[in-house]
Lab assay of single mutants.
Amino acid sequence: MQRVNMIMAESPGLITICLLGYLLSAECTVFLDHENANKILNRPKRYNSGKLEEFVQGNLERECMEEKCSFEEAREVFENTERTTEFWKQYVDGDQCESNPCLNGGSCKDDINSYECWCPFGFEGKNCELDVTCNIKNGRCEQFCKNSADNKVVCSCTEGYRLAENQKSCEPAVPFPCGRVSVSQTSKLTRAETVFPDVDYVNSTEAETILDNITQSTQSFNDFTRVVGGEDAKPGQFPWQVVLNGKVDAFCGGSIVNEKWIVTAAHCVETGVKITVVAGEHNIEETEHTEQKRNVIRIIPHHNYNAAINKYNHDIALLELDEPLVLNSYVTPICIADKEYTNIFLKFGSGYVSGWGRVFHKGRSALVLQYLRVPLVDRATCLRSTKFTIYNNMFCAGFHEGGRDSCQGDSGGPHVTEVEGTSFLTGIISWGEECAMKGKYGIYTKVSRYVNWIKEKTKLT
């Protein structure tokens, strides 16, 4: 034993070699072989497995989906700052455009905790909710729209109204504003409101030439003092309507412009014939205590009207009353817009006519005020429907199939267009061939041609 100890002390290297040989010859039971080890760690190889990531292109799944990435790591994937920024906006807080917040056709661009709407022409605001041009839906104005110097929408209202708090709607500024039905039992019968379409306001006024200088022999019209197929109006439903009495009662109609003036057809009036105007009328054979009678003290036909040349060209006249009318729910003026808007309103496509005229061709006159909704007829169809001249200051309205029309005794009465609950004068009943005849239409004086003249002559002093 002493000898062994001496050998170990003198030859430590020998001992180490012996131990190493023993270990190498022993069977290893701690580690699995290569094949079995792979069965336990069965993990798919990654895209760049075996390579240094710093030297390969980034992978979106590896960089940002398996674990949260930084902007720089995302930049490695896209290799483009702009594309990385677009991805980053949604990656950080989701897609803010998912709810489609942009209105009126706006395009949404996502941002971090926010979004941006790219608005089409005519709109602005956070969600493109603000109209900035009158060309689109009248700028959301209830009545009139004008573009300011910086191309912003400025709404306005006709006389007797003021802008509401929203700067879009119009509200009454006087007790009985024009064009409004205020009798409670008839307010439910107000005709369907007309909503502004998209309009090209630059070209809204037709490029028409008034044929002022045409000389033409007097034409022989049949029954051209021209509501057939209409309905009984309720008291106060058309408070701007008046009836004219002269040699015979209810020979023509008219509309209240203001307390002192009536507008009617020029062919209705004769110099030297006494005319009485009755406002607030409903049943011409009954006294309903809503009527107001006034005498006409002055007749002003349009300066281009000449019955000797043509009885229905420039067929418009103004009547001055001896005493002002007292405005109330049964006696209310009709609204008159400017030339541009009167023309736009007419193009809405349908209007209402009213009167006490004959209820059928050569038949009896109506006792109760009649009204009828009539569609506008395109000019080409209008011209083809008659052998008589249709001037540019006239328009056609009615039904091709016949059966409904204005008729004798309705002449001078109103053709009105309702705009968001307020009625505007767009025409004056003038003439036609018979009444409600198939293929024939009622012919009306186009008020847009005469609004400046009306307003100039009827100013209240």
Rank of each mutant, 00 (worst) to 15 (best):
C178M: 00
E35F: 05
F348P: 02
Q90P: 09
E10V: 10
R43P: 09
Y371F: 13
K446G: 15
E286M: 09
A266Q: 02
V248Q: 11
T218A: 05
F71P: 14
S11D: 02
G105T: 11
A308C: 10
R3C: 08
F238E: 01
I136M: 14
E53V: 05
S25Q: 08
V359G: 13
K89N: 05
I40C: 14
T389N: 13
K339S: 15
T422K: 08
C69V: 04
P375T: 12
P120D: 13
G94K: 09
S365P: 04
V451Y: 10
G106D: 03
C170T: 00
C97Y: 02
P12D: 04
F78I: 13
P235V: 06
D212C: 13
P239F: 01
H289R: 05
D198N: 08
T264M: 02
F196R: 06
L189V: 07
R162Q: 07
A366L: 13
L244P: 00
Y305N: 02
N151I: 05
S350Y: 08
D33G: 13
K247F: 05
V183D: 07
G409Y: 13
P375I: 12
V419Q: 07
L325C: 00
G413P: 02
N59Y: 06
L372F: 04
Y22F: 12
S169P: 00
Q57I: 12
G125S: 12
K457Q: 06
I428S: 00
S365Q: 13
K438M: 04
L103P: 08
K89Y: 05
M437A: 12
I112D: 13
G160D: 07
V243S: 09
P235D: 04
D315H: 00
D338Y: 03
K440Y: 14
D150F: 05
L52N: 15
K347R: 10
L346A: 06
H282R: 06
T342R: 00
N48Y: 09
S187R: 08
N393T: 14
T386K: 08
T426L: 01
S411Q: 08
R226I: 09
K188V: 09
A279F: 01
L189G: 08
G351S: 11
T276Y: 05
R83A: 13
S99Y: 10
N127W: 09
V331K: 00
W431R: 03
V92F: 06
I300A: 02
P235I: 07
D110E: 14
P375S: 14
N393F: 04
Y47R: 11
A149M: 08
E208I: 11
C335K: 00
V154N: 06
L19T: 04
D200I: 08
N452S: 10
N80I: 03
L372S: 08
L103Q: 08
F123V: 07
C97K: 03
Y371I: 10
T225C: 13
N306T: 03
C18N: 01
N213K: 05
R449C: 15
K347I: 03
A207F: 06
S365E: 15
C28G: 07
G427M: 00
E124C: 07
N36Q: 08
T133W: 06
T426K: 00
F424H: 02
P120E: 04
W356D: 02
I275E: 02
A307L: 08
F71E: 15
E281D: 08
S156P: 00
M437H: 08
L211D: 07
Y441T: 10
T190G: 10
G351E: 01
T81L: 06
T445Y: 05
V277E: 01
L41A: 15
L318Y: 00
V374Y: 03
Y161D: 01
C157I: 00
V359N: 14
R180G: 03
L103R: 10
G21S: 11
V202K: 11
T332F: 06
N313D: 13
I256R: 00
S25I: 10
L19Y: 04
N203R: 09
G403N: 08
L163A: 02
E193G: 11
T215S: 08
G106N: 03
V92E: 15
G432S: 13
E418R: 07
I7F: 11
S350V: 13
T389S: 14
Y161F: 07
G272A: 06
T194N: 08
T215C: 08
G122R: 10
K188Q: 11
H415E: 00
N313Y: 08
G409Q: 14
E79Q: 15
I136Y: 12
T290W: 09
K459H: 15
V451P: 00
D33R: 07
D223K: 04
S70I: 04
S49A: 03
S220T: 08
L24G: 02
L460Q: 15
T209S: 12
N113L: 07
V4H: 13
P235G: 05
E82Y: 12
E73G: 08
P324A: 06
K39L: 09
N135K: 11
E288K: 10
T194Y: 12
G355S: 06
G432P: 13
A380L: 07
S184F: 12
A37S: 09
K362D: 14
L346H: 09
E288W: 06
V273H: 14
L383P: 03
S329N: 13
K152E: 14
A265M: 02
G398D: 05
E53I: 06
N59F: 08
P375G: 14
E270K: 07
T16C: 07
R364A: 14
C69L: 05
R191C: 13
K446N: 14
Y312I: 09
R226C: 14
R3W: 11
R140P: 13
K126V: 05
R404S: 14
C119I: 01
G409M: 14
G355K: 06
C170A: 00
N166H: 03
T381G: 07
F78C: 15
S423Y: 07
N80F: 02
Q219T: 09
L23T: 02
C252G: 00
K45V: 09
E82G: 15
S423K: 13
K68C: 15
R373G: 06
I275L: 11
L346G: 02
N452L: 04
N100I: 05
A9P: 12
L41S: 13
K234V: 11
W240Q: 00
N295Q: 03
K39H: 11
L20M: 06
K247W: 08
E66Y: 06
S184R: 06
L325A: 01
E66G: 12
V368S: 05
K137C: 13
G21D: 01
G50Y: 09
V419Y: 15
L383N: 14
E124F: 09
S184K: 10
Q2R: 14
K339Q: 14
G398E: 13
S187V: 10
Y312F: 12
L244A: 01
V77N: 15
G179W: 01
I210Y: 04
H314A: 09
V77D: 15
G349R: 10
E10H: 12
S182Y: 10
V154P: 04
R404T: 12
D249A: 12
K146D: 09
K455R: 14
L23G: 01
I344S: 14
Y115S: 13
A308D: 14
S430Q: 10
Q408E: 07
H302M: 02
N283W: 06
N36L: 05
S204L: 13
P375M: 13
Y371K: 10
Q370F: 02
G412T: 12
A366H: 12
V368T: 15
G13C: 09
L460I: 04
F224K: 10
C268W: 00
T225Y: 10
K438T: 04
G230A: 11
K440A: 10
S184L: 09
V377A: 13
C396N: 02
D232S: 11
A265H: 01
Y22N: 03
V199S: 08
H400A: 11
E288L: 07
E61R: 11
E171Q: 11
E433Q: 14
N100R: 12
D198E: 10
Y441L: 13
V4I: 07
F424T: 01
E142V: 04
S217H: 06
N328K: 01
E456R: 04
R62Q: 12
K45C: 08
S350P: 11
E193Y: 11
N104K: 14
C157W: 01
S187G: 09
V77M: 13
L376P: 09
